[in-house]
């Protein structure tokens, strides 16, 4: 059975679900952040697959802009995590639910 669009749909759905499970299972804020990156990459993979199927360059530019936004997001998010570690000496998200101390 040759590879078609359904294979790419299933693959990126699987990667996205693994990212969701990781974000719900783990308590380490950095790991949750990495799972969000995994979900973004699953979507990127699907966009590139549809760009290949329909022969359109716009989807690949959307992937490019998603990477740009993800880079900015990682810079700000890691700064927030470092600041939080400096205050409470932990990256456990259960400590964050108080929001004051």
């Amino acid at each position: 059975m040759p590879v078609n669009s359904t294979h790419y749909l299933f693959l990126s759905l699987l990667l996205f679900s693994i990212g969701i499970m990781g974000a719900l299972m783990r308590r380490n804020a950095i790991i949750i952040f990495m799972c969000i990156e995994l979900m973004l990459n699953a979507v990127n993979l699907l966009l590139v697959a549809f760009s290949k199927i329909y022969g359109d360059a716009d989807a690949q530019l959307f992937v490019f802009f998603i990477m740009v936004v993800a880079a900015a997001e990682v810079a700000v998010g890691l700064a927030i995590i470092v600041m939080m570690y400096r205050k409470v000496h932990s990256v456990d998200i259960n400590i964050l639910n108080r929001l004051k101390h």
């Binding site: 078609n4 669009s5 759905l13 969701i20």
Partner: peptide
């Protein structure tokens, strides 16, 4: 366990919705 079940249910729901999607062959 709740996290795994929620992720698995999301997987199944989207799987059921894309199961009938039109299959495009890849050039």
């Amino acid at each position: 366990l709740a996290g795994v079940i929620s992720g698995g249910v999301l997987f199944l729901v989207i799987l059921a919705s894309i199961k009938t999607a039109k299959t495009e062959s890849i050039d």
